[in-house]
């Protein structure tokens, strides 16, 4: 009985989370008025929407932009966060918890609240309508949480490991790069992935700080798709585009999920 309930609950959760994606796939395979027929699988599946997405606008360019911005943001965020978390997690200094709290509080502002300020900043730096501007502004929300998560992981690494390295003559830089970094692998994969997804999906900044089609990222490109007339929303194409940009994310998660769950520190200390 208990197992049955559990299975039912699981089924409900899976249905709830998977259904929208399933519906997007189904809709993307339909064309014309078939969109408005409720059916489990299109009677006449077609890839026309997928072709139209890439024909109607520089969608390939948008994907490339998103890829560049998201991976750039992940790379820089992780590099900064690893070094910052070593300082915040391992070095005792005055004002450490204040600093940690202020980093956290930065991420509490809603995007809209910082939008106009950031706009001025981006303009002043001459980064308007450039991918650099997007990368810079995305770090506002990726950095706080990468720093926080990595600091937590860093604190849990055994102190004696660091001390053994110190006795072996390792400098802080060597400790971070050659001892801690390999051990932080799972944490890096998890936080990096989350940062990537956030940057990949970001909409408001991308809409505000870019102007031309060739600088748009995927979410903006999808939102700005238009049909034959101003009054028609090309649902089929929107769905097709959504599927195209979601698949890489799912692939990433599947690739990294083993890294995320594996406990690499096993064997470092007793146990």
């Amino acid at each position: 009985m208990k197992r049955l309930l559990f299975a039912l609950l699981l089924a409900a959760i899976v249905f709830y989370t998977v259904f929208p994606f399933y519906w997007a796939i189904v809709s993307s395979l339909k064309s014309g008025s078939a969109l408005f027929i409720v059916e489990a699988w299109p009677a006449d599946p077609t890839l026309a929407n997928y072709a139209a997405v890439f024909r109607g606008q520089p969608f390939g360019r948008s994907i490339l932009n998103s890829l560049l911005v998201a991976s750039g943001v992940v790379g820089v965020s992780l590099a900064l966060a690893v070094t910052a978390s070593y300082a915040l997690g391992r070095v005792a200094f005055r004002g450490r918890s204040l600093l940690l709290l202020s980093i956290l509080s930065v991420s509490m502002f809603p995007q809209v609240a910082v939008l106009s300020g950031l706009f001025e900043l981006v303009r002043a730096l001459g980064l308007y309508n450039s991918l650099w501007g997007l990368g810079l502004t995305y770090m506002i929300f990726t950095l706080p949480f990468t720093v926080w998560v990595l600091t937590t992981f860093m604190r849990e690494l055994p102190r004696e490991l660091e001390e053994a390295a110190i006795v072996d003559g390792a400098t802080p830089w060597v400790i971070v790069t050659r001892i801690f970094l390999p051990l932080l692998g799972p944490a890096l994969a998890a936080t990096g992935l989350l940062a990537f997804i956030t940057a990949w999906n970001e909409f408001l900044f991308a809409l505000t700080f870019t102007l031309t089609d060739d600088r748009r990222t995927v979410p903006v490109a999808i939102a700005l798709m238009s049909g034959a007339s101003a009054f028609e929303l090309p649902w089929g194409q929107v769905m097709a585009a959504s599927v195209v940009v979601t698949v890489p994310l799912i692939a990433l998660v599947l690739v990294f999920q083993r890294r995320i769950v594996s406990g690499l520190t096993a064997g470092a200390v007793k146990g």
Binding site: P158, E160, L161, E163, A164, A165, I166, V167, D168, G169, A170, I179, P182, L183, L264, T265, A266, G267, A268, V269, K270
Partner: peptide, 30 residues
């Protein structure tokens, strides 16, 4: 003088072996 310059070696209670390195690399690291 920092630990590495004191001509000492330390064996820790928890061993503190570098988990991602082989035994050889552990011993050769210093």
């Amino acid at each position: 003088v920092p630990p590495a310059g004191r001509g000492i070696a330390m064996v820790f209670q928890s061993y503190a072996l570098y988990p991602h390195m082989s035994v050889y690399e552990n011993m050769a690291f210093g």
